[in-house]
């Protein structure tokens, strides 16, 4: 629905919007100095304000560029690699926030485990690169335009919120507040919060994952499932157990 050059135009637009909204905020942040490192943080780490700001911008741009790369590739493996790149950039952003545990988990779980599974599935499907199904004509263009408008509105809304924030949340982020406790971002602290404040969400996610596993086994297991279509297929391929019943 959008020609190839259209994606580049969207990317450029997004970049321009980002710079427009974030540049004043970043400049203000750079003037006010970096957030004080939590007690126990390595001495001298992230000391230089300009360097930190530069690093943040490089990483932020890399994150966005990786994400844009993902949605503009026809080749699925290239798309997955773009997503892995994005996860790496996010992991470094976590590390810059003294959340080393989260940074390593980001690499271990997302880049290392989940994306390997993605590649595995793509390899098994082994679908050739082909023209994606697309709406054409006036209707298609209208839908694309509306989607683009909605996307820009949401993006603008989010970025506007970011710019408003620093003044309001200055007090919350002050040293000694709840966020910067002694071992902020450490393994023990994350574990304590996970199993006390967020224990319900943690257990709920465990149940959701369990249901996904049970569902996958139910679908994959031969001879299970009792729909008539299933039985017909079983008979058609000469399934030993099913043939007599069907």
């Amino acid at each position: 629905m959008i020609p190839r050059s259209g994606y580049s135009a969207i990317a450029a637009l997004c970049g321009a919007v980002l710079v427009f909204f974030l540049a004043p905020g970043a400049a203000a942040a750079a003037e006010s100095g970096p957030p004080a490192p939590p007690p126990g943080a390595p001495e001298g780490a992230l000391g230089n304000t300009a360097a930190v700001a530069l690093l943040f911008w490089v990483l932020a741009l890399a994150t966005v560029a990786g994400a844009v790369f993902v949605i503009t590739r026809r080749n699925m493996v290239a798309g997955v690699m773009g997503l892995v790149f994005t996860f790496f950039a996010v992991a470094v952003l976590y590390a810059m926030l003294y959340a080393h545990f989260l940074a390593v988990l980001q690499v271990l779980v997302y880049a290392g485990a989940i994306m390997v599974l993605f590649v595995f599935v793509i390899m098994i499907l082994n679908k050739p690169e082909d023209e994606p199904w697309a709406l054409t004509g006036l209707v298609g263009k209208a839908i694309a335009g509306l989607a683009l408008l909605y996307f820009l509105m949401r993006l603008g809304g989010v970025l506007w919120g970011v710019r408003e924030k620093p003044a309001a949340s200055g007090a919350e982020l002050s040293p000694g507040g709840t966020i910067q406790s002694g071992d902020f971002g450490s393994l023990a602290e994350v574990g304590r919060v996970l199993f006390s404040d967020y224990v319900f969400a943690f257990e709920a996610i465990a149940l959701i994952l369990l249901s996904a596993v049970v569902g996958a086994i139910t679908i994959a297991r031969p001879g299970s499932g009792s729909s008539s279509q299933d039985a017909d297929e079983g008979a058609a391929v000469g399934d030993g157990e099913r043939a007599p019943d069907a």
Partner: peptide
């Protein structure tokens, strides 16, 4: 303090090499 997890992360990234090489 997350050295062990770092090793596991690197081990899981190593899988990319053989998978992508094969693909």
């Amino acid at each position: 303090n997350v050295g062990l997890l770092f090793f596991l992360a690197m081990a899981s990234l190593g899988a990319y090499s053989v998978i992508l090489g094969g693909w």
